[in-house]
């Protein structure tokens, strides 16, 4: 039950979280998976099949873009990097503002309910 609820919440904010990480630096999918695991407090341990569709959605919306970048070292193969577009950075700021308002609202409601139930 708890897990299902956490899953639903995660689904709602995943686009914003991924966009945020890409706004921080140009990166590739696997690095994003690692970052989400390190910084996600156990909520964002994603698999490829969950992360990449988010990236495709963001890319199709013009919020991020992908490009092949040559890697350091002669033998290293080029890798597909994702970077945020200007539109993506603006979208992230909007998303974050909505998130702050939303979470404050939820907190308010829950605080009221807890006060009443006492």
């Amino acid at each position: 039950m708890e897990q299902k609820f956490a899953q639903q919440l995660k689904k709602g904010v995943l686009d914003m979280i991924v966009l945020r990480l890409i706004c921080e630096e140009d990166t590739y999918g696997y690095r994003l998976l690692q970052k989400l695991e390190q910084r996600g407090g156990g909520f964002f341990n994603l698999k490829e099949g969950t992360l990449y569709p988010v990236l495709y959605r963001l890319e199709d919306a013009g919020l991020i873009q992908s490009a092949w970048q040559a890697a350091e070292g002669k033998r290293a193969a080029p890798k597909k990097y994702y970077s945020a577009t200007e539109e993506g950075r603006q979208a992230y700021r909007k998303y974050h503002r909505v998130w702050r308002e939303f979470s404050a609202c939820v907190e308010n409601i829950c605080a009221e309910k807890e006060g009443e139930s006492r």
Partner: peptide
């Protein structure tokens, strides 16, 4: 088209793990 995208991303991931 999506298959190609997935292929590129998984290819990058496999390459990184190999490195």
């Amino acid at each position: 088209m999506t298959k190609e995208r997935i292929n590129h991303d998984l290819g990058t991931e496999i390459q990184l793990l190999k490195e």
